[in-house]
């Protein structure tokens, strides 16, 4: 069970947490095709809210770790594209396959982020596959250390 399962959030927390998701979306639109921009936005938002309440921190962390994962796959795609345009690599089925794969994952992430921003604003808890438990683990570990 998530550490936020029985957390009663107030309106200000919901707004801040929701903004964390929206911030990454906005940065995606502004920062394309550079994959680093959306991560930077999430990092800035995370650090500005790391001393906030658990609810806000949890959702900022979930955004951050999901963006970090996407950054890795997007950066591979970006460098592959650059090597085709400026280097010796050629257009190939593998490249097209990879681009479609990361495009699919980016679109799914985009939809999930919009959904999360709306639900979190309403005070509902949204926990994504893999990133949710990972965020839980990060927040739980940091919480244990803080208590100690």
């Amino acid at each position: 069970m998530s550490i936020l399962a029985e957390y009663a959030s107030n309106d200000m927390e919901r707004e801040k947490a929701s903004n964390g998701y929206l911030m990454s979306l906005l940065a995606v639109m502004v920062g394309l095709p550079l994959p680093i921009v959306n991560l930077l936005a999430s990092v800035i938002f995370y650090f500005s809210n790391r001393k906030s309440t658990l609810f806000v921190r949890w959702h900022c962390t979930q955004t951050l770790v999901s963006q970090l994962t996407l950054l890795i796959v997007n950066a591979i795609g970006f460098s592959w594209t650059m090597s085709i345009i400026f280097g010796d690599n050629m257009l190939s089925n593998e490249y097209i396959g990879y681009v479609i794969t990361i495009f699919t994952f980016n679109v799914i992430e985009f939809i999930f982020t919009i959904n999360a921003a709306i639900k979190v604003r309403k005070g509902q808890h949204v926990e994504w596959w893999f990133w949710g438990p990972l965020t839980d683990l990060i927040c739980r570990t940091s919480g244990q250390k803080t208590k100690e």
Partner: peptide, 30 residues
């Protein structure tokens, strides 16, 4: 326990990614 869950879900995600990538790469788009 959460760490096992994270690891398992990460593994599923990687398998899903690689399956999609491998499947799409086998299509002769060229």
């Amino acid at each position: 326990f959460p760490m096992k869950k994270v690891f398992f879900q990460f593994l599923v995600l990687v398998i899903l990614f690689l399956t999609l990538f491998g499947g799409l790469s086998s299509i002769d788009f060229m």
